[in-house]
């Protein structure tokens, strides 16, 4: 059984259909990249998987290890191991990163019947991950993303991922707005997370991030459907030729159907 099975997914927001019959299979241990032009539905796919309620699924299904992901609330999906790194992480004044992360980690542990982690056990664990993401220890006491630079916010997302150790990580345009240094740090964090029982989906518009996080598969999403899949070399082709080629191909297929 594959870890993730997406079949014929149709989703809309405010009566606008975005995903129009998307199929995708992801196995544990694999890194998939989903590329596509703006507005093709990449972020919608991420949001649907993270169970954001304003995206309405009208058709199709998503199975996570055989469980119906679409029946889950956001917190249940998170506890089942889905983690989405936000394209635009939210700033929350008044809650420290350490407090928030320990609360989140303990919510997940509780869900799995594990003992909650106290501050004594949590801090060394947290500090170890901070080192990995090359963030300053002052992160701990700072409010969640408040006043963070773009790069700091993205690093904080990957830091959260490293702590929560999800089964399925979805990176929604994590590269947007990152300079090369920040991209390298973020990629290091993600690569350190690669493991035989974890799957990672990297959503991006540009190929550059994939130089650092080398995917096993690349899919091209156009107009709500995956129109082309291939290996990592597909990303390079796209970089050279742009999405114009695949878009024409896609409409040609549509006409042929």
């Amino acid at each position: 059984m594959s870890m993730l099975e997406i079949r014929n997914l149709h989703a809309r927001i405010e009566n606008r259909e975005i995903l129009k019959g998307l199929n995708l299979t992801v196995n544990a241990g694999e890194v998939h990249s989903i590329m596509g032009p703006n507005g093709s539905g990449k972020s919608t796919l991420a949001q649907v998987m993270a169970r954001r309620e304003n995206y309405v699924v009208t058709e199709g299904e998503i199975l996570l290890d055989g469980k119906d992901l679409l029946a889950m609330k956001p917190e249940d999906a998170a506890c089942e191991g889905v983690f989405m790194a936000f394209q635009y992480p939210i700033e929350i004044a008044g809650i420290s990163n350490a407090y928030f992360l320990r609360a989140a980690l303990n919510a997940v542990r509780k869900y799995h019947g594990k003992k909650e982690m106290d501050a004594m056990d949590f801090m060394p664990f947290y500090k170890q991950k901070m080192k990995l993401l090359e963030v300053d220890e002052s992160f701990m006491t700072r409010s969640v993303n408040e006043g963070f630079s773009g790069g700091e916010k993205k690093r904080n997302e990957i830091l959260q991922m490293a702590l929560l150790e999800p089964k399925l990580a979805i990176l929604d345009e994590t590269d947007s707005g990152l300079d090369i240094d920040a991209m390298r740090i973020v990629a290091n964090g993600v690569n350190a997370m690669r493991s035989p029982d974890r799957a990672i989906i990297v959503i991006t518009h540009y190929q550059r991030l994939l130089d650092y996080i080398v995917p096993d598969f690349v899919h091209v999403l156009v107009d709500g459907r995956i129109v082309k899949s291939g290996g990592k070399e597909l990303a390079l082709t796209l970089e050279e030729q742009g999405y114009v080629g695949v878009e024409t191909e896609a409409s040609a297929t549509a006409v042929a159907v």
Partner: peptide, 13 residues
């Protein structure tokens, strides 16, 4: 938005 962010990390509503 903030509510969803927290829930997406595992905290119940």
């Amino acid at each position: 938005e903030a509510l969803f962010y927290l829930r997406s990390r595992g905290l119940d509503e």
